[in-house]
Design a protein around this nucleic acid. Structure first.
Lengths: 266, 266
DNA sequence: CCAACGATAT
DNA sequence: ATATCGTTGG
């Protein structure tokens, strides 16, 4: 038996919206620890990991570990029926092929109950080792989203380079090229506007903007985003979810070929 | 000769917008009593009835009963040319094949005059008998609209069930099912937020959401909607127009078949 | 948080 | 041209 209550129901809407651009169907895992998910995107290039810790819920009951395959678009469709300040209760039963969402309006005058069919999904859950990164950049999530969107209109890939002074995002395309430098800056009115660079080693890596622009769908979840970089390791783009956990996206860097791909010879 | 003046001209825009999704062409009837319309939707399933009483106009002159066939989309097109605070005067002449709209800006600095061609329409005007209903639900029109929209994303039909405690809207579709319960509640800050249930007999009826979602185009006309239900009778969804009359939509319930439509045999 | 307006997509 | 979505303002 499974029963999760979240007073700030809008959070769940944001979580699903953050992921469904990348992943259509995913298996959610529920245990005493929390509510989590791990999934590759449909082209098996990027990975997303979600954790909502049990302590973050206003009520959390999970009698035994359970895995539930859900279609994220259908899930979003149902969650869209919740008011933005509705309380959401998620219920599941062992062995059942459905789960249910209950939405309670703040005044309790409107109570909605949605039942959703589960799906069979082969959930390949990888262990993701903790790693030490050469550089960790923290910046406003909206700024990162804007940069990825802007660069995406110029080129297909972004080179992220970190130095002590800051972080540089570069791209190049048919119509020209672009470099956006964000320098470290903690001297702001509010901490969520800060940009900080924690650098052990300078690093410069290339990523497909297409995926970066999917990752930024998680922007509403957090004011800040954390980008962890190391050569040879997938970048981690993390959006912390206040009091509850995170959504993390992993993407392997492109192997830097000699200059442009316009060169026909290997 | 016919001359109707309405200081709150935006009302006329809302009335036409409320109807034109359902009905393309309609015959407006004008008499000493008022300005009215009755029309079936194009698939002859739903019926709409409009009444704007003569007393509600700021000037009302109708020398003899007259019927005017109008294309509602064309009418909307013209009315869209009126400012939201404009005073609208509607004029017609017996025997003429056109009518005219005059828009006066509040400051009288801009006076527009639009002439619209009438059309021949066979206006089959039914008598709609007053009926006694098993249950009458009153609720905020925006809430009703939201419910119909939400359920429309899950299923095709809605079951409306009324008990003493409140009203329940249910649907079922490929991805799952939904129940939304609104309980009676008069204890609110403002009367237009109230939900009241006047129940003589419990009732549960099924309707096509497609039509319900057309009816809710009338939402801007009134803060409250009234839903009158009886077995064997069409539901009446009514939006009152302050001081003037109403727009009423009628829709026959679906005959409840034995469970699902997945059964191939009749 | 709800409503109106503008922009975009069909 | 119309309907829906997203954004901005109250």
């Amino acid at each position: 038996m499974l029963e999760l209550r979240l007073v700030q129901g809008s959070l769940l809407k944001k979580v699903v919206d953050a992921i469904r651009d990348l992943v259509n169907d995913a298996s959610f895992d529920c245990s005493a620890t929390g509510f989590s998910l791990q999934a590759m995107d449909s082209s098996h290039v990027a990975l997303v990991a979600l954790l909502l810790r049990s302590e973050g819920f206003d009520h959390y009951r999970c009698d035994r570990n359970i895995s539930m395959g859900m279609n994220l678009n259908n899930m979003a469709k149902m969650l869209r029926c919740a008011g933005n300040d509705d309380i959401i209760t998620f219920k599941g039963d062992d062995g059942s092929d459905t789960v249910s969402f209950m939405f309670e309006s703040p005044t309790q005058d409107k109570i909605s109950d949605f039942e959703m069919k589960l799906m069979d999904i082969d959930s390949e859950r990888l262990g993701i080792p903790e790693a030490k990164y050469q550089a960790i950049v923290r910046m406003p999530s909206t700024e990162f989203a804007r940069i990825c969107k802007d660069l995406g209109s110029i080129g297909d890939t972004v080179v992220i380079s970190v130095t002590k002074e800051g972080v540089k995002f570069s791209t190049r395309g048919d119509i020209g090229s672009a470099n956006i430098v964000c320098r470290q800056n903690t001297d702001v009115d509010k901490p969520e506007q800060a940009t900080t660079v924690e650098m052990n080693d300078p690093v410069s890596l290339t990523f497909a903007l297409r995926y970066m622009n999917s990752f930024t769908k998680a922007t509403p979840l957090s004011n800040q985003v954390t980008i962890s970089l190391s050569s040879e390791l997938p970048v981690v783009v993390e959006y912390k979810i206040a009091e509850m956990g995170y959504v993390r996206f992993y993407l392997a860097p492109k192997i830097e070929e000699e200059e442009e791909e316009t060169k026909p010879e290997v």
